[in-house]
Design a protein around this nucleic acid. Structure first.
Lengths: 122, 122
DNA sequence: GTAATACCTGAACCTTGGTTAAGGTCAAGC
DNA sequence: GCTTGACCTTAACCAAGGTTCAGGTATTAC
C-alpha cells in the first residue's frame, strides 16, 4: 500500500490552489497523475516533491513554458539538459537578486528623504 | 528655455518602449505631459526622474495599480502616504530577496545532484 | 434516504501588461 | 514638391496565468 495524496493535500502542502493544480495538468505542465477507482487524482510522494520544486521555480519567476520544458527533459531522462536549464535559471535568480538589492538601496534613500520631509511638516 | 525630452529620449534613458510610455499615460499611471506646438510630448527633467523611479518600482514587481496609487499620493503631496507605500514595498523587496536566496540554495543543491548524475553516465 | 463533502469535467471568463495596426500630421532635407 | 522620420490617435489584438461556472459522481455522516 503506497501512501497517496489527494489534490487538497497537494494544495495544502504547496500553497498552489486546487484549481491551479488541475490547470497545470491541463496545460501539460505536469504529466497526468494516477487515478483512484472513483476517478479522483492520487498523488505519490514523488509527485508531491515535483510540485514542491515547481513551486520553487514559479516563485523565482520561471515561466510555465520553461518549467514544462524542464519537466519534459526530466521525463526523457536528459539530465544534461535539465542541468543546463537550472544553470541558466540560477543565473536569472542571481540577476534578480542583484536588481532587487540595487532597488532596495534606492528605496532606502527615498524613504530617508520622505522621513525628513515629513518631519519638516510637523 | 527649459530642457525638454522627446518620447524617444525617455525611452532611451529608461529602457521603457515608446509604446509603453504612451500606454502608461493612457491608463492614467502618469499624468498627461505638456505638449509642444505640434502636439509632440515634451518631458521635463522631473518627468524623466519620475519615469526612472517608476522603472525601479516596476522591476521590483510593484503592480502598475500600486505605482499609480503612489504617484497619486505624490501629486496630492501626501508624503506620509508615499512613505507608507514605499515602506511596504521595501518589505516586499526584502521578502523577494529572501525567497530568491532560499531558492538559490535549492538550485545549487539540485545542480550538484545533476552534476553527479551526469558524471556517472560517462 | 438525504444532506454535506470532496472530488470530477469542459467551457467560458477574467486580469495584467502590454503590442500592433491603420491612418494622419508636421518639419527638415534634397 | 516630395520623401523621410519622428511623432500623433484610436482601436483591435495578444499572451500569460489563472478563476469561475454549471452540472455531475461518489462517499460519509446523520
Amino acid at each position: 500500500m503506497e501512501i497517496t495524496y489527494a489534490i487538497a493535500d497537494i494544495s495544502a502542502e504547496t500553497g498552489l490552489s486546487i484549481d491551479v493544480i488541475r490547470y497545470y495538468e491541463r496545460i501539460g505542465l505536469l504529466p497526468a497523475v494516477k487515478r483512484k477507482e472513483n476517478g479522483h487524482r492520487a498523488y505519490s510522494k514523488s509527485d508531491l516533491a515535483r510540485f514542491t520544486f515547481v513551486k520553487h521555480l514559479k516563485r523565482t519567476q520561471m515561466p510555465l513554458k520553461e518549467i514544462e520544458r524542464y519537466i519534459r527533459f526530466y521525463n526523457e531522462e536528459n539530465y544534461e539538459a535539465c542541468y543546463r536549464v537550472l544553470q541558466e535559471h540560477k543565473l536569472s535568480i542571481e540577476r534578480q537578486i542583484a536588481e532587487l538589492t540595487g532597488s532596495l538601496g534606492m528605496m532606502n534613500y527615498k524613504l530617508e528623504n520622505y522621513r525628513q520631509l515629513i518631519q519638516l511638516q510637523d
